[in-house]
Amino acid sequence: MKVSLTVNGETREIDAEPRLTLLDALRDHLRLTGCHTGCEHGVCGACTVLIDGAPARACLLFAVQADGLEITTIEGLAPAPGELSLVQDAFCETHAMQCGYCTPGMVLTAHALLRDNPAPTRDAIVDAISGNICRCTGYGQIVEAIELAARRLAGSNAPAKGDAA
């Protein structure tokens, strides 16, 4: 059936079986491969996208259910080719990753957190990312990255373009 997906501000129509997950639709139909497949049963968070601004698991939603919703993927965060969002830059600054596989989900989760709570406590950061499993970092440098991003956000007069997700 025809499904209209609005991803990163652009609306595209795909032809999808009802059983096609949003994750597979993004990856295989729209070639937005920054959304990663980890467990396909809603635990690991590697497929996190923002739906109407809020983090959600793309593997737990069929594409047909997402018809007409506002979806943001990792590809929608960088302000311009070759540039990084403030959060992405902070992740690079603290080396908040190793293999990079969970990273898009972590970055999107961090964007959503900082939009709702620009000065999160460590506990709030930990809770926000606790639905995203990282096997490489032990989370330390991810927490540091989000703390750094929050400090930088506070230090700037207005969030830079692309940071509000």
């Binding site: 809603g42 739906i51 809020a54 983090p55 959600a56 737990l60 809770d127 639905g131």
Partner: peptide
């Protein structure tokens, strides 16, 4: 409610 799954699952 904060004990229900994770933020990402409570959003849906």
């Amino acid at each position: 409610l904060p004990w229900v799954g994770h933020a990402a699952t409570r959003n849906r």
